[in-house]
């Protein structure tokens, strides 16, 4: 009985695979024919000669700078607002504010950066403004939630001790909670910044500035040489940021 069921399941999966090919009209045989292989070779060939002219490199440097600035500013804004929302979300000001701020954080986080960017392009116009806002909005949701969790996991005793010496709640937070919390916050911020640089280089596809916008424009005009330079620049940028970020985490956070 069991074997029969397994056999039926196997046949079902096979039928589903064949049906998918028929429905989508994909012809794998086509992929191996000589004419198509030549075409693929030629397409890849055009990408293998990147445009390294000074004017284009200058434009790319400008775009890369814009991408870095967008991600850094977006992350910074998100860190500030994330912390402001994390305090009520960790239940510091009673449950009504806790539920409300959690709802806001979840809503911000549920909408992806690209959708925020598309919305912001409509609101703030084309360019890096929209990209920065989009990154800030999504990252506020992510960082706010991570910060709130970190706040809930921080031992309350040091802050309680300062309250017991007559210090007010703000100083209890600054002197009792923050020293434990700060490395964790820093680690989260650096991690999100790293993510955001990668994201910022794509956001240009919906018109939100940076390297992505250059790539989109070159690809739309079939300028493969220029596009390949942009892709190279993206790779270098992301690699550099990964290195910088892991170095700074080792330096300041010391896990």
């Amino acid at each position: 009985m069991n074997r029969l069921f397994n056999l039926a399941l196997l046949l079902g999966i096979g039928a589903a695979v064949i049906a998918s090919f028929i429905y989508l009209g994909i012809d794998l045989g086509e992929l191996g024919s000589t004419g198509n292989l030549n075409q693929m070779g030629a397409y890849a060939q055009r990408f293998l000669s990147p445009d390294l002219s000074p004017t284009h490199l200058q434009a790319i440097a400008h775009g890369a700078l814009e991408t870095i600035a967008m991600s850094a500013l977006g992350t910074l804004i998100a860190a500030v607002f994330g912390l402001l929302l994390a305090l009520p979300a960790a239940g510091r000001f009673g449950w009504p504010l806790q539920s409300a701020s959690r709802l806001v954080l979840n809503a911000l986080r549920a909408v992806p950066e690209l959708v925020w960017a598309a919305l912001m392009v409509l609101a703030a116009g084309l360019g890096p403004n929209a990209g920065t806002l989009a990154l800030a909005l999504h990252t506020t949701g992510v960082l706010g939630r991570l910060f709130a969790e970190a706040l809930e996991n921080t031992p309350p005793e040091p802050a309680d001790a300062i309250r017991l010496q007559g210090g007010n709640a703000v100083w209890a937070f600054c002197y009792g909670t923050l020293p434990n919390l700060l490395p964790q916050l820093l680690a989260y911020i650096l991690y999100r910044w790293e993510n955001n640089i990668r994201m910022a280089s794509v956001l240009g596809f919906v018109g939100a500035g940076g390297l992505g916008q250059m790539l989109y424009v070159s690809l739309s005009l079939f300028q493969e040489a220029q596009a390949s330079t942009v892709i190279l620049a993206m790779l270098i940028l992301v690699f550099a940021v990964d290195t910088l970020s892991s170095w700074s985490r080792q330096r300041w956070v010391k896990a």
Partner: peptide, 14 residues
Amino acid sequence: IGLIHQSPPLPPRQ
């Protein structure tokens, strides 16, 4: 009033 705790609740990184 000053209270000395048995295991002082000091932040480890402070």
